[in-house]
């Protein structure tokens, strides 16, 4: 399998990259880790005329703590996320989720920015970022802007990024005390896309839920927040009944489709099961 010919550009600065995007318009594609794009190109499902490799651009590859946020450069590799003490220390959900993404080699290339910018509800980090209430920084000809994660995923493989913008950074709030997080996806085999995945970040006040974020993987055309489940659990203790009800609400609200991974009904049911388990695990970690 071999891609159609294209022109390759490897700009050294963000400005140059944005300039190329402006010049080539929608004939151009950004190459970060390439592990979603290159397979599509080899299958000739994607046939860009221009490939803009942003890997030579400095300053997009660090993980830092600053002003109450962890700032993750868009080119940070999944393998670096997996092993970042800063990230996994604050949020074990990064260790949970990253080890379930594809496989070690893919994680060496795949970037966290690409995982989000692809806008694919089957990817794992969209749900994680929804649960974390992260912010995404997009840089374009007019400079940078910050997009709340809830405004970022707009449709099927569609994000808030303008054609001339590049996702450059992800910002995650430093958690207050008594915060726990957890992620799990059911998969047919290791590294597969999820049958259903649930990301949970919560902060406890004693036995009560003070704040909570829940994101769902691969059970909706668009990466999805389980809003009604979050609202239901707020201020409540995590009893079995409450967990069951929260799971039920998310199962109702998502919109999975029947495919080789199972029926719609199965996936809804799995959302409920995994949600319950992840809220429990996050709560244990919060204590």
């Amino acid at each position: 399998m071999i891609a159609q010919p294209f022109q390759y550009e490897a700009p050294a600065t963000l400005q140059d990259a944005i300039g190329l995007l402006q010049k080539y318009g929608d004939e151009a594609k950004i190459l970060a880790g390439g592990h979603s794009l290159i397979p599509m190109m080899k299958l000739r499902f994607a046939t860009p005329g221009y490939l803009i490799d942003i890997n030579n651009i400095p300053g997009l590859s660090s993980i830092q703590e600053e002003n109450g946020f962890i700032r993750i450069g868009a080119l940070v590799r999944e393998a670096e996320v997996e092993h970042s003490a800063l990230l996994t220390g604050h949020y074990p959900i990064f260790a949970d989720s990253t080890r379930l993404i594809a496989d070690p080699q893919v994680r060496n290339m795949g970037t966290i920015g690409g995982n989000l910018a692809h806008g694919d509800a089957a990817n794992d980090h969209p749900a994680v970022m929804l649960a974390l209430r992260a912010r995404v920084v997009a840089t374009g000809p007019k400079g940078s802007r910050t997009i709340a994660i809830d405004d970022f995923f707009q449709g099927f493989y569609t994000t808030a990024l303008e054609p001339e913008e590049i996702l450059t950074e992800i910002q995650i709030p430093i958690p207050p005390g008594h915060t726990g997080s957890a992620y799990y996806k059911l998969e047919r085999k290791v590294g597969d896309y999820a049958i259903a995945g649930v990301a949970v970040v919560l902060t406890l006040d004693g036995n009560l839920v003070k704040s909570i974020g829940i994101g769902l993987t691969n059970v909706n055309p668009v990466p999805m927040r389980a809003s009604r489940s979050e609202e239901f659990l707020l201020g409540k203790p995590l009893t079995d009944e409450n967990l069951a009800q929260a799971g039920k609400l998310a199962a109702e609200d998502c919109s999975p489709s029947t495919d080789l991974r199972g029926s719609e009904e199965y996936k809804r049911d799995m959302v409920a099961v995994v949600l319950r388990r992840m809220v429990k695990l996050a709560a244990e970690r919060a204590k």
Binding site: L186, R188, R261, G262, S263, Y266
Partner: peptide
């Protein structure tokens, strides 16, 4: 025999 098939069988028998 996949998890889905097992779940479906249990569901049909009213076990879950």
């Amino acid at each position: 025999i996949t998890p889905f098939k097992v779940w479906k069988a249990l569901k049909e028998k009213g076990v879950i």
